[in-house]
Design a protein around this nucleic acid. Structure first.
Length: 586
RNA sequence: GGGGGCGUGGUGAAGCCUGGAGUUCACGCCGGCCUGUCAAGCCGGAGGUCGCGGGUUCAAAUCCCGUCGUCCCCGCCA
């Protein structure tokens, strides 16, 4: 009950007929017939039609779209034949007794309905108007429902919500840090956290046992449709836990969030795959399993092949794999395009084949293959007439990755109605860089599955790390952490980080590990990405109220901005001359 | 750092390939008419440095080069 209204616009139904109500909101539409005028008033709850006689209410002629108004009137049934079944409030209307203009609005920079797709830069410049649109309001609501459900679930499971600092020490690993200069310690810098990783591990050592946080994280890397400079994670950690306990807790939060947003109860447990399995079957560590088109091993077929490309690949220890992309048009241009994709992903080439009606193959390489091989390919890939088969002969990693990329390109469904959550476990401990050196595939606090293998054969070593994947999108990752300082030192050693360097970078953390750390494990997933998929939108920016453009700018506030020299001076900073010159150019 | 798409009254599009008067359509805006609409309707009107700079040409929204903005992608994102 307020000075401006006593009833939510969207809540008014036939049971309210006869009552005098006061609603407040925005003019969504005005339909002025001269002798009678209809005004759709929208508030956060919905929309209701107000009917006004211009002779009685002179303000009605002044109303324009998105004026903020307060309306007093009587709820009455709509006359026969004028009800609107498309509207929740379509059976009734408010006969206006008075309309007060709380504030006028200028002519809008764009229409707030969903009929036209407005340039995103303009939407962001007037984001406060953009957010009035029902789709955007629904995205905000979905996000709120998701986080509320997550909080509720974790509270029930006995978790403690703890905040960790956002002004932290910079570490050289991982993504580029967002830096914040310190005034009190000139020449020193904070970093904004890429994740609360080490703090949550400290909380385990602190005896918290079950921690979670809906944490803002920052990574100063290039933006994408699913990446922003700042994003939100559900961060979680448990003591005396292993992988199963983590996956169970995370699964419960995902189930709760999905039910809250979609009203759908997911089937548990989510399917689990090892990293090796998803790489072999789907050619990626974040497979979209809403469709098949799995990668098939064809090595045995070609063990004796005379075809140079296949022979060469096998002799150098490679593999031959293929996918059946199904029946589709396959002009030469398409073949060239896919070959380019294969090459861009490191393959030397791509072998394509179209199954003919007589179970022969139309393919540039068909003449190099004998009948047995052709039949074998069609059988193994379950080829039907018209199916396009794609084969890659290369190093294992290259072959499966290329086919995985093509599979995603050609097979991915374009709607998100179906939700295919899954777990990927048993990630390799290390990845090979282009220069041949190794780097951790998760982070250096991840427990190896076998310490000896890690030491003798690091490229084969598996870790206790796991990912959550939804519809081909990596939602998040976690691991069982190292709680033994000796093991932690050994991992650093293998990575080529000597004791002195480790001490300098993480000494404070290694010291904490000397004071009885409990075994612990945890996880973090991106809430923006989750809500984006649940809401079936193509960009993470649709579920972030005030996002940045691809160049990291906010068209609304103009950030980032230049600052006064006096501000820089307080921080002990000066801009480099060439930077200053560039800023002074028109 | 690289590849690609887009940039035309306030908004969305067409025009660009094949150069010839700022032309067109829809929404919005302003004014008028109108008593049952719900994307109201009808009549009239205003509004544009075709992102910006340079070049080619008798002539550029259109062709070329550069640049800025934006989006998608590669690199990057432990």
């Amino acid at each position: 009950m307020s000075q401006y209204r006593d009833t939510a616009a969207g809540s008014i139904g036939v049971e309210t007929v006869g009552a005098s109500v006061k609603v407040a909101g925005w003019v969504a539409r005005r339909r002025d017939h001269g002798g009678v005028a209809f005004v759709d008033v929208r508030d956060a709850s919905g929309l209701v039609q107000v009917v006004a006689d211009p002779d009685e209410i002179d303000t009605v002629a002044d109303l324009r779209m998105e004026f903020c108004v307060s309306v007093t009137g009587e709820v009455r049934p709509r006359p026969d034949g004028t009800t609107n079944p498309d509207l929740p409030t379509g059976m009734i209307e408010i006969g206006a007794q008075s309309i007060e203009i709380l504030s006028p609005a200028e002519a809008l920079p764009f229409m707030l309905d969903d009929r036209v797709e407005v340039d995103e830069r303009v939407r962001l410049e007037y984001r406060y108007l953009d957010l009035r649109r029902s789709t955007m309001a629904a995205n905000l609501a979905a996000r709120s429902k998701a986080t509320a459900a997550i909080r509720r679930t974790l509270e029930d499971l006995g978790f403690l919500e703890v905040e960790t600092p956002t002004l932290v020490a910079s570490t050289p690993e991982g993504a580029r840090d967002m830096l914040v200069p310190s005034r009190l310690r000139e020449g020193h810098f904070y970093a904004l956290p890429q994740s609360p990783q080490l703090f949550k591990q400290l909380l385990m050592i602190s005896g918290v046992e079950r921690y979670f946080q809906i944490a803002r994280c920052y990574r100063d890397e290039d933006l994408r449709s699913d990446r922003q400079l700042e994003f939100t994670q559900l961060d979680l950690e448990g003591s005396f836990w292993g992988q199963d306990e983590v996956l169970d807790a995370i699964e419960q939060t995902l189930v709760a969030a999905t039910e809250a947003v979609r009203g759908v109860r997911l089937i548990e447990p989510f399917p689990r795959f090892t990293w090796q399995e998803v790489m072999d079957r789907y050619g990626t560590d974040k497979p979209d399993i809403r469709f098949g088109m799995e990668v098939v091993d064809l090595v045995e077929l070609f063990a004796e092949s005379d075809f140079g490309v296949f022979k060469g690949a096998l002799e150098s220890g490679g593999v031959i794999r293929g996918i059946n992309t199904g029946r589709r048009e396959f002009p030469r241009s398409r073949a060239d395009e896919l070959t380019e994709v294969a090459k861009a992903n490191g393959a030397k080439g791509l072998v394509w084949m179209v199954v003919n009606d007589d179970r022969t193959l139309r393919s540039p390489v068909a003449k190099f293959l004998n009948e047995e091989e052709i039949t074998g390919i069609i059988d193994r890939l379950e080829g039907q007439p018209g199916d396009v088969l794609l084969l890659v002969a290369d190093r294992w990693k290259t072959a499966v990755t290329v086919l995985g990329t093509l599979r995603a390109m050609l097979g991915r469904p374009d709607d998100h109605d179906q939700l295919a959550f899954l777990w990927v476990t048993d990630f390799p401990m290390f990845e090979e860089e282009d220069d041949g050196s190794i780097t951790f595939s998760h982070h250096p606090f991840t427990t190896p599955q076998d310490v000896d293998v890690m030491a003798t054969d690091p490229e084969k070593a598996l870790s206790k790390a796991y990912d959550a994947v939804l519809n081909g999108v990596e939602l998040g990752s976690g691991s069982v952490r190292i709680h033994d300082p000796a093991l932690q030192r050994r991992v650093f050693e293998i990575l080529g980080i000597d004791a002195e360097t480790a001490e300098r970078m993480f000494g404070w953390f290694l010291r904490a590990l000397r004071y009885g750390p409990p075994p612990h494990a945890g996880f973090a997933f991106g809430i923006d990405r989750l809500v984006m998929i649940l809401q079936n939108v193509e960009s993470i920016r649709e579920v972030i109220p005030f996002p940045k453009t691809q160049s990291g700018m906010d068209p609304l506030t103009g950030s980032p901005t230049i600052v006064e020299d006096t501000q820089l001076a307080e921080l002990g900073l000066t801009l480099r001359p060439e930077t200053r010159t560039r800023l002074e150019e028109p």
